[in-house]
């Protein structure tokens, strides 16, 4: 059986909120290392990969592999009933029909309990190759969100060019063009404001801004976001969570520009 207790419902609420517009029905794969999710969007352009390590829960117990097929719209409805600060416990039997969610208020004696019916989801699981990326950029997640939103006002796509000079986000649209260039930057007092660019070779790729703006819904999960790029491979956008847990998005580049 599965029993996983989160100190704050907020974490799951934010994760689900960040991915629910991209993917609808997903398997939450539970085993003794934690709870994982991998799903592609309907058009097979983007892929979400979430890992909530067992260390992110206290306690965490999962004796055998259990796949919880959950509709994220349903999960959102139930999670809306949880206060951000509630303790959240997920429970399921070994061959479950439902997943049970319990929300406990730390301040009052209120206990809420919900069951969500599970779905049988036949999901294609993709192998993501280990990649030595040519460029890795760590930057404030709010900054990345702002750049994507600003450029989307002008264009559907953004080119991300990483060179010794820095990283340049550029777009061209009907009304004109725009670009934002960032250089490495260290803020001793506020390390969350750091921009770190690790480059082994110059990279230039073009991506759909609609997807990037969607990924940025995860910005509240982490002060920093990591962008990993190599020519002609999908972009990795990673939001690191506590205890080595993470929420990752992969986005296929536009080709033949």
């Amino acid at each position: 059986m599965l029993e996983a207790r989160l100190e704050q419902a907020n974490l799951l609420k934010k994760v689900v909120d960040a991915i629910k517009d991209l993917v609808q029905d997903c398997n939450f794969d539970c085993n003794d290392s934690g709870i994982a999710l991998q799903a592609m969007d309907n058009s097979h352009v983007a892929l979400v990969s979430m890992m909530l390590k067992s260390e992110s829960f206290s306690p965490f117990r999962c004796d055998r592999n259990i796949a919880l097929g959950i509709n994220l719209t349903s999960l959102t409805k139930v999670l809306r009933a949880a206060q951000n600060e509630d303790i959240l416990t997920l429970k399921a039997e070994d061959a479950p029909d439902v997943v049970n969610l319990v929300f406990e208020s730390a301040e009052s004696d209120r206990i809420s309990e919900y069951d969500i019916k599970l779905m049988d989801i036949d999901q294609e699981h993709l192998g993501i190759p280990e990649t030595e990326y040519a460029a890795t950029i760590s930057m404030p997640s709010a900054e990345f969100q702002r750049i994507c939103r600003d450029l989307m006002a002008l264009s559907e796509s953004v080119s991300i060019e990483c060179s010794k000079e820095g990283v340049k986000f550029a777009c061209q649209g009907d009304i004109g063009s725009g670009s934002v260039t960032l250089r490495s930057h260290t803020n001793v007092d506020k390390p969350e404001m750091n921009v770190e660019i690790d480059l082994t070779e110059p990279v230039s790729l073009t991506f759909s801004l609609k997807y990037l703006v969607g990924f940025c819904k995860a910005s509240s999960l982490s002060g920093q976001v990591k962008l990993c790029l190599s020519n002609e491979v999908p972009l990795l956008v990673e939001y690191a969570l506590a205890n080595n847990s993470y929420l990752r998005f992969y986005l296929a580049p536009k080709i033949g520009d």
């Binding site: 592609m40 352009v45 993501i128 296929a252 080709i255 033949g256």
Partner: peptide
């Protein structure tokens, strides 16, 4: 203009 690539053409079956 550029065409949108697909994730499945980069990431295959494990």
């Amino acid at each position: 203009t550029a065409s949108q690539g697909s994730i499945t053409s980069f990431f295959g079956a494990p």
